[in-house]
Amino acid sequence: MPSAPHAPRWDVHRLPPARGRSFLVTGGNAGIGYFVAEQLAATGATVVLGSRDRAKAEAAIGSIGSRVPGARVRHMPLDLADLATLEASVDGLGLDRLDGVVLNAGVALDHPPRRETGGGHELMFATNHLGHFALTHHLAPLLLATPGSRIVTTGSFAAKSERLDLDDLQSAHDYRPKRAYGCSKLAQMLFALELDRRLRAAGSTTLSVLVHPGGALDSLTPSRPPIHVRTAGERLSRLPLGLVVQGKDAAAWPAVRAVLDPSVRGGRLLSPRAFGLRGTPRIEPLWKHLTDTTTAARLWAVSRDLTGSEPAFTAPTGFGAT
């Protein structure tokens, strides 16, 4: 018997068309999120940049438009550190469906002291994890209305060596900036996998997919003025590092594939091919501590209590009735 046909190899430079589809990228005005948005816009999709800073978002929209003729890109005001504003942000989208969201925005603090949001949460944990947890709750009706929609969560290599202290999730007793950042990203990754389990239990067609971008440096990232300007000197001085890590344009590839590739399934982890640091995206086995379902379920319960919200993907009675 002839063997079953293989799915075509994913080509980061030949993305499938997505005209008529809508995607939201949090933090899409800068860094890796910008390149996720630019690459998705090139497929013909409508791309919404979730960003606190309107001026930066407008600069990103202008940059994308200069590279992608006819790009459909717009801004959604989004402050993940202010949970009370998220419902209004989603209401302002003006969409009746959403094909995917890339939970990409994040904040990293390099030095003490510990900072808190207006709601009293540690800033990195609040922005990177709690804000995305609550945002997913508010986006659920739009995603539920879109068969096969996707929730793509951006993790980090920094989470690989961390473990969550469920009694000190917000680093109130032991605050070390790099550790707090890594734990906030680990919380995001555990959330993505627990969300996948809940989506499957509910029989939902929405997929939760996990990605991490590998190693990404500004000096290896192509210029996108005024968003990012790389000098020739910077590029030449960091060329040897290109053997190990990559630019932020390539770091966007796992998320873009997670959004668009019809062969990707929920609960998978996509990462760069070469040691998880650089190269084209591939499906990677889950890190051992990401398979800890007990910790993930407890984190979900704590996140629900801290945000006062809970992503749910079971259609209410009469949903979609005419």
Rank of each mutant, 00 (worst) to 15 (best):
G148S: 01
A81Y: 09
L103A: 08
Y175L: 07
H13F: 11
H6N: 12
L186H: 08
P147S: 00
A105M: 15
D168L: 09
P254H: 14
T46L: 15
L123P: 06
E87P: 13
G31E: 04
D165M: 12
P69A: 06
P147H: 10
L210P: 13
L139S: 07
A255E: 05
R304P: 00
T85E: 13
G118C: 02
A126P: 12
R176Q: 06
L193N: 07
R273P: 01
L130A: 08
G119Q: 05
L241G: 05
T46Y: 15
V229H: 10
P222I: 15
F125I: 01
D261A: 01
L186I: 08
G203C: 04
P16I: 10
L144E: 05
G65C: 08
W287G: 11
H129Y: 11
A201T: 10
E87L: 15
A232R: 11
S171C: 12
R304H: 02
L166I: 07
A202H: 03
R235M: 14
T280H: 15
F125M: 09
P272G: 10
W253Y: 08
P17E: 11
T206W: 05
R67M: 05
W10T: 06
L260M: 08
H13W: 04
P240Q: 06
V244T: 12
L169C: 00
V211G: 10
R198W: 02
F319S: 08
P262N: 03
A126M: 14
D249L: 08
K178D: 00
F313S: 02
N128D: 09
S22G: 12
G118D: 01
H212W: 07
S204G: 01
G31Y: 08
A41H: 04
G279S: 03
W253M: 10
V47R: 14
G94T: 09
D249S: 06
H132A: 05
L139K: 09
L290I: 04
A315P: 00
K185H: 05
T291L: 11
L186V: 09
R14V: 05
E87Y: 15
M1N: 02
T117G: 14
A4K: 10
T294Y: 01
A251E: 00
G118H: 03
R298F: 05
I64V: 11
R282F: 03
S219M: 11
G33E: 10
A250W: 00
G65T: 08
A60E: 13
N104I: 13
L164T: 05
S63L: 13
L83D: 13
A88W: 13
P225A: 01
V107Y: 02
R198Y: 02
H121Y: 07
T322I: 13
G276K: 08
V12Y: 02
D53W: 12
L123W: 01
A296C: 04
H173W: 10
R54W: 14
R74F: 12
L86T: 15
L239E: 02
G20K: 07
T153N: 06
G148A: 03
V47H: 13
K185F: 14
S208G: 00
S184Q: 12
